[in-house]
Every structure is written in structure tokens, then in C-alpha cells.
């Protein structure tokens, strides 16, 4: 079943988080205001990204990445019998124009450049078609989405989204299960590492902001990225060690109390509803 939505209601970042956490495979087509994007995923990893219908061949990708000169590119193209990337890669390796790691790095940089453009889109529609994967003979490189989301969040313009995700800065953050090992493999900037090192039961987000010398909007942006990458979440009240007594009184006052019926009442309800 396809997932359809609007970027205003469900951002590209949130969609990437869903694909990553649910380890989805398929094609995400985004129709932005001026252009469109196509992203392909396998088991929650980004494999390929094209923006504006531009489907660059490997030689063009490496030339744009500065790994290949125009003359080298022309020479390889002249030898190729098809436009398939695999043949071009083989010819590049044989000619000694590029190494295997040059090719992987070049393709990876191309994918990231394209996907980061999508982060800047705040309007448009999307359709995710599960299990539809078609990239012809293009070379794909699996890219971890957590890294993409954290890095991409730096480019987000919509400060409103950060405030919506984190309206109150007087909350504690908690790492999600498995976040430690994932963080070790990620490439993050200095500010992101500072926030990560201060997050946890010791500090509220406001305290992190003060200690890391980041503005409220900066810390919101970073926390937003880390939350979307499923590395952090806002701690529930029971996960926070000890609230102040005034906090506790305020929360208790606002709390909605349920009814505590007897077990017998619940089993009678269950029996009756089963019979309906």
C-alpha cells in the first residue's frame, strides 16, 4: 500500500525517519513546488537519489565530484557500448582513471547532494511505493539515513517545525535503544556532539543550550535532527529521576485521574462485549 502525504503535514525528514526505522524498501517520489525528486531505499537505507529528473551517468557524477577530467570522461564514453554504469565503472578501473573507492565516494556524494536538497522543501506532495525498486544499471551505494537526517536538519529552514517538535525546553532527553552504537558510526559536527554529550537525565534542553553556548533555535534544530534520526526522544515523566516539588505539584494538579474499578467489573465488561 502506498503512503501518500503532503510535506506541510509530514515533512521529508519525518518520512525518511519512518523509512529508516521501519526498514522499508521502495521508491519515494516527491513533487516539490518547482521540481521533483526520486529516492530509492532498501531495508531502510538510501540507495539512490535523483532531483529534477536528472539521471546522471557515472562519468558525469565523477566529473562533478572532481574525480574525473572532461577529457577522461569523453575517452571512457567513447569506449562504452552502452550507457550502463557498471560498464563505465569497469572501463574507468581498467583505464586507471578512478579507483573503486573513488567511484563509491563519488556516487555517495552525489546521492547526499541530491537528498539534502529535498530537506529544503517545505511544500509539495509525496508518494512512497513499497517494494518498487528500479534504478536500471545505475551504481547504488547504501547510505545510513540517521547520518543523512542529522546532517540534513542543518539545512532546514522551518524553525516552526523545531518549535512544534520541542515546544518546551524544560524537558530531559533520553537516548533510544541502540543509539550508542549507532552514534559511534555516525559523522556529526562539533555542536551535535556537544548536545549528545550533555543529553540525558542530568540536563534539560535549556541547560544543554546554556552549557553548550547554543541559542534556543540552534539547540532545537540539533535536537530535532537527533530525534528525527531516532537517536533521542523526550523523556517521559517517569524516566526523569526527581522532579522538583513545585513541578510535581503542578503536574499532579493537571493530571487526569481514571477510575479504578474492581477486576470483576472489567471481566464482566469483557464477557459482555465478547458476546455481542
Amino acid at each position: 500500500m502506498a503512503l501518500r502525504g503532503n510535506l506541510r503535514d509530514f515533512s521529508a525528514t519525518q518520512m525518511l525517519n519512518l523509512i529508516s526505522v521501519a526498514r522499508k524498501s521502495g521508491t519515494l517520489d516527491i513533487e516539490g513546488v518547482d521540481t521533483q525528486a526520486r529516492l530509492l531505499f532498501n531495508q531502510g537505507k538510501l540507495l539512490y537519489a535523483a532531483v529534477g529528473g536528472q539521471d546522471y551517468r557515472l562519468t558525469e557524477v565523477l566529473q562533478r565530484a572532481g574525480k574525473l577530467t572532461e577529457a577522461q570522461s569523453r575517452a571512457i564514453e567513447a569506449q562504452a557500448s552502452s550507457s550502463g554504469d557498471r560498464e563505465l565503472a569497469w572501463l574507468l578501473l581498467r583505464a586507471g582513471y578512478a579507483s573503486r573507492s573513488d567511484i563509491i565516494r563519488g556516487v555517495r556524494a552525489h546521492i547526499l547532494r541530491n537528498v539534502f536538497r529535498v530537506f529544503e522543501w517545505s511544500a509539495g506532495t509525496f508518494v512512497f511505493e513499497p517494494n518498487r525498486l528500479s534504478f536500471g544499471d545505475r551504481i547504488t551505494v547504501p547510505v545510513d539515513l540517521a547520518t543523512v537526517i542529522v546532517a540534513g536538519s542543518r539545512r532546514l529552514r522551518e524553525a516552526d517545525s523545531f518549535r512544534e517538535e520541542l515546544p518546551n525546553l524544560d524537558v530531559h532527553l533520553r537516548f533510544t535503544r541502540g543509539a550508542g552504537s549507532r552514534l559511534r558510526k555516525m559523522r556529526m559536527g562539533l555542536d551535535e556532539w556537544r548536545v549528545v554529550s550533555l543529553a540525558g537525565p542530568r540536563n534539560t534542553v535549556r541547560e544543554i543550550s546554556n552549557q553548550a553556548d547554543l541559542s534556543e533555535d540552534q539547540v532545537r534544530r540539533i535536537v530535532y535532527g537527533l530525534m528525527q534520526a531516532d537517536l533521542l526522544h523526550v523523556a517521559l515523566p517517569e524516566e526523569v529521576p526527581e522532579a522538583t516539588s513545585s513541578d510535581r505539584r503542578r503536574k499532579e494538579g493537571a493530571r487526569v485521574r481514571g477510575q479504578r474499578p474492581s477486576r470483576n467489573v472489567i471481566t464482566r465488561l469483557i464477557d459482555r462485549i465478547r458476546q455481542l
Binding site: N6, D9, F10, P237, A254, R255, R257, G258
Partner: peptide
Amino acid sequence: PDTFREAREILNTFQTYAD
């Protein structure tokens, strides 16, 4: 999906205040 944002707010409220 245009109602998910509001759904999030309702769920956040429950997680914080509803016993």
C-alpha cells in the same frame, strides 16, 4: 496525514498528564 500533527499533540498530552 494532515491530522497527524494534531494527533501527536493529543498523544503528547496523554503521555504527560493522563493517568
